[in-house]
């Protein structure tokens, strides 16, 4: 359950109540707005997590009753939301100093930190229990591991300590297809691990494209993102390296015979597009320190493309499996 694409979600729910311009509503009124509780779940992150989870569920061999499938996807969504709430509770200090996060419900004073933590823990435990009771143990176990990984390994341990935070933390966002697969089959196989690896390797170039242009925010908050610690030049190099790994990796399901030409050709074409975007990031006009002279336009484009890329890649896999 990762921060995938969260970084476009700059203000929590993005609009202000009539009072929020001059008072912190929590203090003033003692009743929070329902939209703030929804914003705590990071709904935009949920979209990608739910989508990749659904794809894992759709491409897995076997049959699952639609009600159970819906429950599995709901549990994945709720767990992702719970991770978002716990993340916002833990990161409330750095959220308060970063431009794109300072209007989130906790730093803006609309929701108390303890309330957000309780909300997150309740949802996380609830999602795992329902997954176990309604779906199966394997899916619940992987779901619990993914929550633990995101909260303890990524949020609390790695994020503020190492520039490799995104690399290892990316694993948290790579779990949903495995959970979806486990919901159908009751086990974890090679193919879901390949899907896991694809999201895992996709995450660093996706995040670092963002980090290149959100560099100032991360520096101010003291988060050791790669551009802050190693500079923009090194970040561009790492983006290219991970992208070169990613494209052949996406062809593995085709190579293994799990998918047909619809997916294979799509993965190849999308991958070439990804490499073209990344090449533009690498060759962006920059000063001696590697800082962009184009306001990081290629990095912004690569970030947007990377989200579309993952959506279409996984959709192609599902289409291939369903009609191929």
């Amino acid at each position: 359950m990762s921060d995938l694409s969260t970084h476009t979600n700059d203000t929590g729910r993005g609009e202000k109540s009539p009072l929020s311009s001059h008072v912190a509503p929590t203090e003033a009124l003692g009743v929070t707005d329902v939209r703030d509780w929804i914003a705590l779940l990071k709904p935009r992150v949920m979209t990608l997590v739910v989508f990749t989870g659904m794809i894992g569920l759709l491409v897995a061999p076997g049959h699952i009753h639609p009600v159970i499938a819906f429950t599995a996807v709901l549990c994945i969504a709720v767990a992702a939301g719970a991770c978002g709430a716990i993340n916002m509770w833990y990161d409330r200090d750095i959220d308060a100093v970063m431009r794109r996060t300072r209007n989130r419900p906790i730093p803006a004073g609309r929701i108390e930190a303890g309330g957000a933590l309780g909300y997150g823990i309740t949802l996380a435990i609830g999602a795992v229990i329902v997954m176990e009771v309604a779906v199966n143990f394997a899916a619940a176990a992987v779901l619990a591991i993914s929550i633990g990984f995101y909260v303890f390994i990524y949020t609390m341990w790695l994020k503020r300590r190492t520039p490799q935070n995104i690399v290892i933390g990316g694993a948290a966002g790579a779990f949903p297809p495995v959970i979806g697969w486990a919901a159908v089959t009751g086990s974890v196989d090679l193919i879901p691990l390949v899907l896991f690896a694809i999201v895992f390797i996709w995450t660093p170039p996706h995040f670092w494209s963002l980090a290149l242009w959100a560099n100032d925010d991360y520096r101010r908050a003291g988060v050791p993102m790669l551009p802050v610690v190693a500079g923009a030049k090194e970040t561009r190099k790492q983006i290219v390296l991970y992208s070169l790994l990613l494209v052949p990796l996406t062809l593995v399901p085709w190579y293994l015979g799990f998918s047909g030409p619809i997916y294979g050709v799509s993965a190849l074409v999308l991958g070439l597009g990804f490499l073209a975007c990344v090449a533009r990031v690498a060759t962006d006009k920059q000063d001696a320190a590697g800082v962009s002279l184009t306001n990081d336009a290629p990095a912004r484009a690569a970030f947007k493309y990377s989200i579309l890329y993952l959506f279409v890649l996984f959709a192609a896999l599902a289409v291939d499996r369903l009609i191929g």
């Binding site: 009539p18 009072l19 003033a28 009124l29 009743v31 707005d33 329902v34 939209r35 509780w37």
Partner: peptide, 20 residues
């Protein structure tokens, strides 16, 4: 005491939370 605007906002939020 909350102003009239604040009281209306309070009622709106309570109703929203209850319905949710």
């Amino acid at each position: 005491r909350p102003t009239e605007t604040e009281a209306a906002e309070l009622r709106r939020r309570r109703r929203g939370l209850n319905l949710a």
